[in-house]
């Protein structure tokens, strides 16, 4: 049963992160998920200090606040200070992450946050933290409910906002010419990325969120040239990654989050080398 819950959790994270990651990839913003997931650390620590415990809601608010702060800082360094965009991302997320570690060290007595845990998560502990109703009914792991709720919201957003996201991603200039607000869709996507990163991050750690946000969409991108297929494949790959990663981790007795990243990378490598028409093998063949 534990295995089921862990794989389900992994799949839920993979689906939410992957669907958003596909749009980030097409917008050439793949590193942004990485940056946001690191930059929220001080928000989590501050929330912990204020609330005095690991209550999910304050943590979520703190982290979301710093997620938004990070995007605003990056935007400011890029626009106001005219720093090139990759440097703006690098300066912002490392600075905020360093601040987070310092806060943890400074309040070591009061903060029961382990850096390892922040980075690599505790997906193995997901089944332990169950949601029990006042009448004593066991509803299963809390994380699954939270992540499931998030996924429903995201699917709603993608379903309703599909056209807006696609047109502003494909050609912002044309969207603007039609009178579509490009910055509205940009910030909507960024907020969704922040919230998803933060919610998933609490459960599975920053590293796995980043891996799921980037690698399965990139694999799917190599395998198809239809956006709907790419999104569907991303979800399937996420499921396969969660399943394969769990098995690998169990076999080696190693980190589940790490193993899932490795499996995601393995799928990517296969696609890179063997994809029909675009794979490396095909390129060699053509030569």
């Amino acid at each position: 049963m534990n295995a089921f819950w862990i794989i389900l959790t992994g799949t839920l994270v993979a689906t939410s992160s992957g669907l958003l990651g596909a749009f980030l990839l097409l917008r050439k913003m793949s590193m942004l998920g990485d940056a946001i997931s690191h930059a929220v650390l001080p928000g989590i620590v501050i929330a912990y200090l204020v609330a005095g415990s690991r209550e999910p809601l304050p943590m979520l608010l703190g982290a979301a606040g710093f997620g938004v702060l990070a995007t605003v800082l990056i935007e400011m360094l890029y626009r106001k200070a005219r720093l090139q965009s990759d440097a703006a991302i690098g300066v912002t997320f490392t600075g905020l992450f360093a601040l987070g570690i310092i806060l943890i060290s400074a309040f070591a007595g009061q903060v029961d946050l382990d850096l390892d845990c922040v980075l690599f998560g505790e997906i193995a502990y997901v089944p332990i933290d169950v949601w029990i109703t006042p009448s004593g009914l066991n509803l299963g792991p809390r994380a699954v409910w939270i992540l499931g709720g998030l996924l429903v919201l995201l699917l709603l957003l993608l379903g309703l906002g599909y056209k807006g996201l696609v047109i502003t991603t494909f050609q912002a200039e044309y969207a603007a010419a039609l009178g579509v607000s490009v910055s509205f869709w940009h910030y909507l996507l960024m907020s969704a990325v922040s919230v998803t990163t933060v919610v998933s991050f609490e459960v599975v750690g920053a590293m796995l969120v980043v891996a799921f946000m980037v690698v399965p969409p990139a694999t799917a991108f190599l395998l198809t040239n239809k956006l709907q297929h790419m999104l569907a494949l991303t979800v399937l790959l996420g499921l396969g990654t969660a399943l394969g990663g769990y098995c690998l981790a169990a076999w080696l007795d190693a980190s589940i989050a790490g193993a899932m990243s490795v499996v995601a990378g393995a799928f990517f490598l296969l696609a890179l080398l063997l994809a029909p028409r675009t794979g490396y093998r095909h390129q060699l063949w053509q030569r």
């Binding site: 097409l26 050439k28 991603t169 494909f170 050609q171 991108f221 198809t224 239809k226 956006l227």
Partner: peptide
């Protein structure tokens, strides 16, 4: 718009 203004690898 100009043809160069989009990424033609876009899956569409």
């Amino acid at each position: 718009p100009q043809r160069e203004s989009v990424d033609w690898d876009f899956p569409i």
